[in-house]
Simulated scan of single mutants.
Amino acid sequence: MALRPALSTATAVAALLLLAAVPSTPAASAPLETLTVAKTGTIAPDGTVTLSGTYRCTDATGPVFVSTAVDQSSPTVRHGIGGTRAVCDGAEHKWENTGMSSPDALKPGAAHVEATLMELRPEGGLPLPFFHATQQQAITLTKP
């Protein structure tokens, strides 16, 4: 029976170490950090989608990216549309992501975009996501 308390103690220590390594709540973004999505994007005949907008961020210690996903007919199926490296210097910058959706998955018309300004922040030797800003936007996909 001495084995059971030892396992419980080891499990508890492992859980505490894990909790100490991963923040339990996401950090709030600074008030000057923003992300916008343009109200229109383009979709070429070959399925290439281009989305754009602006961002502003500060105080990054790791690489930062603007990533985007678009959905149209089903909110449970999103199509990742590229990623842009971001510069967090406090100034407003433009971003543009281009990517190809699966054939016939998207077409001109109403769509929904989710954009994220995310940093891979080094925490204890591992890069963990830190979200500077997110934006959801109803847009219109048009032919270029």
Rank of each mutant, 00 (worst) to 15 (best):
23 P>D: 06
32 L>E: 05
40 T>L: 09
140 T>S: 11
95 W>L: 08
91 A>W: 14
14 A>P: 01
135 Q>Y: 02
68 T>W: 00
114 E>I: 05
104 D>Y: 03
85 R>H: 11
61 T>V: 12
3 L>V: 13
18 L>F: 03
118 M>H: 10
91 A>C: 14
10 A>G: 04
113 V>T: 06
98 T>I: 04
79 H>W: 09
126 L>T: 04
31 P>S: 13
34 T>N: 05
93 H>R: 11
116 T>R: 08
113 V>S: 07
88 C>K: 02
81 I>D: 10
15 A>T: 09
41 G>Q: 05
83 G>Q: 08
70 V>Q: 02
21 A>W: 14
144 P>T: 06
64 V>N: 03
144 P>G: 06
6 A>K: 15
142 T>A: 08
48 T>H: 13
22 V>R: 02
103 P>V: 13
5 P>I: 08
128 L>Y: 00
9 T>F: 07
15 A>C: 01
119 E>A: 04
18 L>E: 11
58 T>H: 01
55 Y>S: 00
85 R>L: 12
2 A>S: 15
103 P>F: 10
92 E>V: 15
3 L>I: 08
43 I>D: 04
127 P>D: 02
74 S>D: 15
8 S>C: 05
72 Q>L: 05
120 L>A: 07
28 A>G: 09
16 L>Y: 03
61 T>G: 05
133 A>M: 05
92 E>R: 15
119 E>P: 01
12 A>Q: 06
41 G>L: 11
97 N>R: 06
139 I>L: 10
91 A>S: 15
104 D>R: 09
67 S>A: 00
59 D>I: 04
73 S>G: 10
19 L>M: 09
64 V>W: 00
143 K>P: 02
6 A>Q: 12
101 S>R: 03
20 A>T: 07
29 S>C: 00
12 A>R: 03
64 V>Q: 03
132 H>L: 07
65 F>K: 09
133 A>L: 11
127 P>L: 13
75 P>Y: 14
140 T>I: 13
43 I>L: 14
83 G>E: 14
57 C>Y: 04
76 T>D: 06
68 T>G: 01
142 T>H: 10
37 V>T: 01
128 L>D: 04
93 H>F: 13
111 A>R: 07
41 G>F: 09
74 S>G: 14
82 G>M: 08
107 K>Y: 13
56 R>Y: 02
